[in-house]
């Protein structure tokens, strides 16, 4: 008797895992198709650049404050923690290098992408989801206007444009925050801070690679947010779940992509 219930519950669990796998795969395929269609119907986003510009405003400009404030704090914490460790080895001048390299290579692109997913990604998902729920996308279709060209593609390109800008700002503001802690507060030498940094941060290997990372994250985060909104069940619950999924999937994707990109860039 006990054996048979165990048996049934195992089968049920396996079946659940299987159906979830199928569901995930299906969504992956649908997402890839939306990505492809977005690229195909991107012409209008550039021909009528005002459409894209408006979305740059609502994704990029609206994320400025959170990016700048977070970058400032992240930079200050990095300087504090870095100093704490580095002064034990008598190389507190290297604090500039530590702050700059951490920000430019990793924290700038990654934290920006995570904040972007939370700030702009959720907004995109909720907006598209609600447009679907209130039949705005259907209405557009019925007016012979392609919603992918008119709604999805401009938002996609706006995200791809905004992300590297935000990430560069994040790195720069973070370094300034680190400078404020290291130089006036702790008393590290001003010249050593900058010169060590310049000696060790390579423009192509570190800064350009950081920008490339942020562009890739921009594509991933924006596309995930758009797909989740476009695919959301047209109910209040459906949109709220899609919004949550945007944050979860974007964050995981960004971290995984970061590992892959870093391993390529470090050429190990």
């Amino acid at each position: 008797m006990i054996k048979s219930t165990l048996h049934i519950s195992i089968i049920r669990t396996l079946r659940g895992i299987g159906s979830r796998m199928i569901e995930r795969t299906w969504r992956l395929g649908a997402g890839a198709r939306l990505f492809f269609l977005t690229l195909v119907y991107s012409g209008e986003s550039f021909r009528r650049f005002n459409l894209t510009l408006r979305e740059v405003y609502s994704t990029g400009v609206m994320s400025l404050l959170i990016i700048i404030v977070s970058a400032f704090f992240v930079g200050m914490v990095l300087a504090l923690q870095g100093y704490n460790t580095l002064q034990k080895y008598g190389s507190s001048e290297a604090i500039g290098v530590l702050v700059a390299l951490s920000l430019v290579r990793e924290l700038g692109p990654v934290v920006t992408a995570l904040l972007f997913a939370g700030r702009a990604g959720t907004a995109i998902t909720a907006e598209i989801g609600l447009m679907k729920t209130t039949e705005q996308l259907s209405a557009m279709e019925m007016m012979a206007v392609n919603p992918i060209a008119r709604v999805i593609a401009p938002r996609f390109w706006a995200g791809v444009i905004s992300m590297p800008i935000l990430a560069s700002l994040f790195s720069m503001v973070g370094i300034l925050g680190g400078y404020l802690v290291a130089v006036p507060l702790i008393g590290v030498d001003d010249g050593a801070f900058w010169s060590q940094m310049q000696a060790n941060v390579d423009f192509r290997l570190d800064i350009v690679n950081g920008v490339i990372k942020s562009i890739v994250f921009g594509v991933a985060c924006t596309m995930i947010a758009l797909f989740e909104g476009y695919d959301a069940p047209p109910t209040a619950e459906g949109v709220s779940r899609a919004t949550t999924r945007t944050v979860v999937i974007s964050s995981l994707t960004v971290l995984a992509l970061d590992f892959i990109l870093t391993s390529f860039m470090l050429e190990v």
């Binding site: 039949e135 705005q136 259907s138």
Partner: peptide, 11 residues
């Protein structure tokens, strides 16, 4: 032309 149930105006 189509009139949707709740109007479906672009908000």
């Amino acid at each position: 032309g189509m009139l949707f149930q709740h109007g479906a105006l672009f908000t």
